[in-house]
Amino acid sequence: MFLPGGVSLLSATGRQVIAFFSYFGQIAQLQWDILVGLVKGRLEYATTIAQMAFTGVASLPVVAVTMLFSGMVIGYHMAIVTGQMGISNYAGRVVAETMCRELGPVLVSIVVSARVGAAMAAEIGTMKVTEQIDALRALATNPVDYLALPRWVACGTMVPTLTFLGDTIGVIGGYLMAVLAPQLNAGAYWTSIPGGFAPSTLIAGVAKSVVFGIIIALVSCHQGLTCRMASEEVGRATTRSVVYCIMLIYGANLFLTSLIFRG
């Protein structure tokens, strides 16, 4: 009585473990195929530029709003906290460090996962279900080269660009609240930043976001390309793409943070 239950539990766990590794195997294979396409010069510029505009330019408003408001609340908190600690003069630097190390890369990537990653999974998934992917192949076009590669390039370049802009907007947002807070000397907000904030911190945060951008492209394109052949599956693939992107970004962030920031 104990044994059968135990065995089925074990085999169920085994299946989960296999599914987990097979998922990462497929993601690694997709990354490999994309790199081969890139090296062999199969990138199509027109679609890549369209994807960069969609990923970068069209995401800028929501990224700007997200980062402005995050900067404002962080600035507000830090004005109070640094005031209590008697280090009000450091408020600007604290906001800049928070934005560039963590909030910029992670929040921007999550916004892009939801806005761009979901759209990519839905668009490619719809193409799969309506046999447009097969039509590509029938016209001697590799779907990875044609669909995934431009999106990979777009996410890999635009997510860091948005992160850089988002960091800047966040710091400005912090300033706007700091000016309102009575404890804080608005001029000191800016002078505190060049004093101790190292440009390498900004670069390290932006570097993390390159990885997050690549994760978004890989996960979303994979969900689209492997979507099962039923229209309701497109919705599932889209949801999965956002959830997996966010989970993997958290995990990768923890790993990269401990790898990059040592000091």
Partner: peptide
Amino acid sequence: NRVRAKMGMCFQYSALF
């Protein structure tokens, strides 16, 4: 892809882009 160049396919549901 080289072999497919000899063939054209018209899909059941058209599969237009």
